[in-house]
Design a protein around this nucleic acid. Structure first.
Lengths: 392, 392
DNA sequence: GGTCTTAGTTCACGGCCTGGAGGAAGGGAG
DNA sequence: CTCCCTTCCTCCAGGCCGTGAACTAAGACC
């Protein structure tokens, strides 16, 4: 159990947070609706809202007919109160985007990187940051924070393990923070894409969900009780390395029979090759071609893939009983666009009746470029949690 | 995000809860230690403790040397302030136990049942309840609550689905509550055993853990961030029906290749039989014999079982990144007593390096009879959550 | 223009935690 | 035995907070 005192000031902060988060998430809302939603007294809502308006966090935005009397004044979080920046660190590029609080993109910067050393990445993130700030004409003091998404395990704002980049124990947040006054948050890329889908995409409204990402490799983001679940030491969600064929294909992680070895694009193409198929072009082109190929052995390979993926989904359904599974990743989207219905049916064959009946399986809505968007929500989360209090 | 206002009264309740839970969980504590642990002011601790003492929830229990000055007075939850009752509903019997708040058993009642119909079970639970209350000499008003553990999915205190009993949509809590004034809580048996292990057994101190239960069938209880994780609709933790051998053995759930079909006692014995082994006696006797048999095919069957179980554990390790996995259930304990080290090694072959290094795999400490104990914690949880406020 | 209805504001009140002053309870030196 | 020191605990004034009731604002309808 959490051992945390509550003081009279926590109360106000907590109520500010409840009000601000409600306004942010549930669109423009009147004071009257806030009293209903938060079950605070009308007096308190007025009081807290007045404070938020004075500080500039919230603004009035027109009014709407009431139920016969004085019209309700709508409130919204002022989109230009502050700005947030999200960065996506990939193997070949660093993308940085600047958003207002309504999450409209105001500026973008892409930097190709040759060798993804920590120093190189830090440099490009900082350059991207100052580039988007300058080109959008936003004052640096107006930037609430910078969220950085990297593929790897992130514990306490430090990268602990990033295999694809070849990093180990890199204190990324600290390194970046040395080059800017803006508060820095670092998190895992899959979680950030998941976060974006949960807030603005196919996950909206769900509190217990899994965002399953199938690309060349396979990963996932778990959402439990409305917030991201990270496990004891921030490495939860490694769905791709779940054993699904005991003693099966060798996976790049070293184990046998991992889901990734069967349904990751690399694994699929390799299985196709072993079945006698021939491939042309890069991974993605080859994958698209394979998906369109109705002859053998392509058709069987794809059908098998759906089966394996379904078993992987079913394991999630049985173990975590989510209300929604969101399939994404470039290969996942391609697969899902053509075979989502089959997939749903196959999941039913592997999952228990009850949890299967409670889950809906849908596709990501935001495409694969939402990682920076997700990262940019990190400072927003902090703002909402603290009820609009600024850091520093 | 949770939309919950905070009032000045919530503050006090929350702080009472923090203090009471600290005293309950961390043994006798002085006011001084409470101020440190809760970061409340000494004044508030005194004030709240005085209230708790007046109400009889907490009592002083000797004193201990301070660091040179006035001795510290120790505080503990008065074990006899109230009593709690836990009931375990099995297929063949109903066990009811009465505990004081220190969870000492004061009375026990076992009732064999012939046909586990809801009416029969309700009758035996109520009889058991009055029997333990009477024989322990406790006043019914002194009983804080009755926790009932059943094997099945329990949603909102009502059974939704209990295959082993053949129940569907049985409002068990309501049925029992009609026969007593004592508040009734109903929950899933595996979760309750897990709860008991987490509070008093091998799970103590862990906040992210899995209690894995291997009996004739296979199940688990997930603990995330210090409390039981139930998923969107209370059926999370169905670890036994995770596909682990794609296209493998038929499981009683209808799917192919479930973990349970390989490592559940029934599945193990069946595999032994198929390998040419012969069995005598009931399931448990046969299983013990099989474990002791060093010849073929027994040895291979057991070695394979460890392998399958390890893959099942590794899937938990990768997906939920627990700090501890507690193995229990009658077959799990028998297996673990002889093969725990091998199991740990095998898990390492299937799991990712990082999360594997962070998990410890241990055996249940409370034996298989702790279900009623776990169920009895349900009213205690409520008491601590509400800071000692009584229901009704 | 008057009246009705609903939205939002003002203010006295009771409840809460806190810091500081002071009391309680033991140890140790003389 | 007395006095002083240290530490634990309690009491009290003070500052915040949310609430309910009275009150003001703002449109609709007749």
């Amino acid at each position: 159990m959490e051992v945390r005192r509550t003081t009279v000031r926590d109360m106000r902060r907590s109520n500010r947070s409840v009000i601000l988060a409600s306004i942010y998430r549930e669109g423009p809302l009147s004071r009257q609706e806030l009293t209903v939603r938060t079950s605070l007294s009308a007096a308190s809502v007025s009081n807290l809202v007045a404070e938020l308006i004075t500080e500039g966090v919230v603004e009035e935005a027109g009014s709407v007919e009431s139920e016969g009397g004085r019209p309700r004044v709508l409130l919204r979080v002022a989109p230009t109160f502050r700005y947030v920046v999200g960065a996506e660190v990939g193997e070949t590029r660093v993308r940085v985007e600047l958003f207002d609080l309504a999450m409209n993109v105001l500026a973008r910067s892409d930097h190709p990187i040759s060798s993804p050393t920590p120093a190189e990445v830090v440099k490009h993130v900082l350059e991207g940051l100052s580039s988007v700030v300058t080109s959008s004409g936003v004052q640096p003091e107006q930037v609430l924070g910078l969220g950085v998404a990297v593929s790897g395990v992130v514990e306490d704002n430090a990268i602990v393990d990033a295999q694809t980049l070849g990093w180990e124990a890199v204190p990324l947040a600290k390194l970046i923070a040395e080059g800017t006054d803006i508060p820095v948050h670092v998190d895992n890329g899959a979680n950030m894409l998941g976060q974006a889908e949960m807030w603005f995409g196919a996950g909206r409204g769900a509190t217990d969900a899994v965002v399953a990402l199938v690309g060349s490799g396979v990963g996932s983001a778990l959402v439990a009780g409305g917030s991201s679940y990270r496990g004891a030491r921030s490495s939860a969600g490694e769905w791709g390395h779940m054993t699904i064929v005991y003693g099966g294909r060798q996976c790049r992680c070293g184990a046998l029979g991992c889901l990734e070895a069967y349904v990751g694009a690399e694994g699929i193409l390799d299985r196709y090759r072993l079945a006698g198929g021939t491939l042309t072009g890069d991974e993605e082109t080859a994958f698209v071609e394979l998906l369109d190929d109705k002859s053998e052995p392509a058709a069987t390979i794809i059908a098998d893939t759906i089966g394996y993926l379904a078993a992987g989904f079913a394991n999630l359904v049985n173990l975590v009983n989510p209300e929604r599974i969101v399939l994404g990743g470039w290969a996942g989207l391609l697969l899902g666009e053509k075979h989502l219905d089959e997939l749903r049916v196959e999941v039913g064959k592997h999952a228990l009746r009850r949890p299967y009946a409670q889950v809906s399986i849908v596709l990501c809505e935001l495409g694969r470029d939402a990682v920076a968007l997700g990262a940019a929500t990190l400072p927003v989360v902090r703002l909402l949690r603290d009820g609009g209090a600024l850091p520093r």
